[in-house]
Structures are given as C-alpha cells and as structure tokens.
C-alpha cells in the first residue's frame, strides 16, 4: 500500500512541478520508472490522468500527453513480455528514447539535452532504489 501511496504522491508532485516551474519532463521519468519497478496496471491509469492534468496546466491540446504516455508504457509492456526490463541499461535507454519522444511533441527546445538529463537522473534513482531493495532483502534474511 505504501508503494502505491508514494507512487501517487510522486506522480502528483511531478505534474505540479512540470506544470509551473520547469519544462523538464519529470512526469515521464516518474511514469516509466514506476512501471519498470511496479509493473502494475495502475500505472496506466495514473499515466492517463497525469496526461490530462498536464494538458490543462500547460495549455496543450487535451489528450495528447495521455496518448504519448500510454503509447510509451505499452511499448515497454510489449518489450517486457520477451526481455527483462529491470536492468540499468534498459532504464537508461527507455528514459532516453521515451523522454526524447515526449519532448519532441511538447517541448520547444533543448529536447535531446532534457531527455539525456532525465535518463541520467532516472538511472541514478533506479540504482538507489535497487540498493535499498537489496539491503531490505539482506536485513529480512
């Protein structure tokens, strides 16, 4: 339950921050990382709602952000049916490609730089979460 509470709060925070003070695509980082870690259908629903909220706050055409988020998540879902996605290289490249695709549609400039930064940031967050998860497992044993 705590995992899902943290997920919802981080989704909301990323949308508010991206809607008011920065063009940095934080929401795509939260969504892709959440799906890689949790692999839950709830992430799809949150992606849809976050997209609508972002469209209203950033004055984009209603529905476009939701479509981009859902499309990227579905591609990751299709990939995970054949290959392992809980790995650092996949996290990095999925954030880089997903972030660049998102930025191409909605961010006017510095698209590659922003996607590279979220890929690096997301990879660091994933490393930290993996380390915490391993430590919890060791303590549990």
């Amino acid at each position: 339950m705590l995992k899902y509470f943290i997920l919802i709060v981080s989704c909301l925070l990323s949308v508010i921050v991206e809607g008011s003070i920065t063009t940095f695509p934080l929401s795509i980082l939260v969504i892709i990382l959440s799906y890689i870690i949790l692999r839950s259908n709830l992430v799809f629903v949150l992606a849809f709602l976050m997209g609508l909220l972002l469209d209203v706050m950033t004055f984009r055409r209603f529905g476009i952000t939701s479509m981009i988020f859902l499309g990227l998540l579905f591609l990751i879902f299709l990939y995970q049916r054949k290959f392992e996605i809980a790995s650092l290289p996949f996290v990095f490249f999925s954030l880089l490609i997903g972030g660049y695709t998102y930025a191409k549609f909605v961010i006017p400039d510095n698209q590659f730089l922003q996607s590279l930064l979220i890929a690096i940031l997301g990879s660091l967050i994933y490393l930290c979460l993996s380390a915490i998860h391993k430590k919890e497992k060791t303590v549990g044993l």
């Binding site: 799809f44 849809f48 609508l52 529905g63 939701s66 859902l70 579905f74």
Partner: peptide, 16 residues
C-alpha cells in the same frame, strides 16, 4: 494490461 491500455488509449484518442 492490453485491455486497460486499449480502453484508456481509445478514450484519450477520442478526446484528442
């Protein structure tokens, strides 16, 4: 998952 994706994506596409 596929069902959830299709429903949500269609809804978003209709809105768009």
């Amino acid at each position: 998952t596929t069902f959830v994706f299709i429903v949500l994506f269609l809804f978003a596409a209709l809105i768009f």
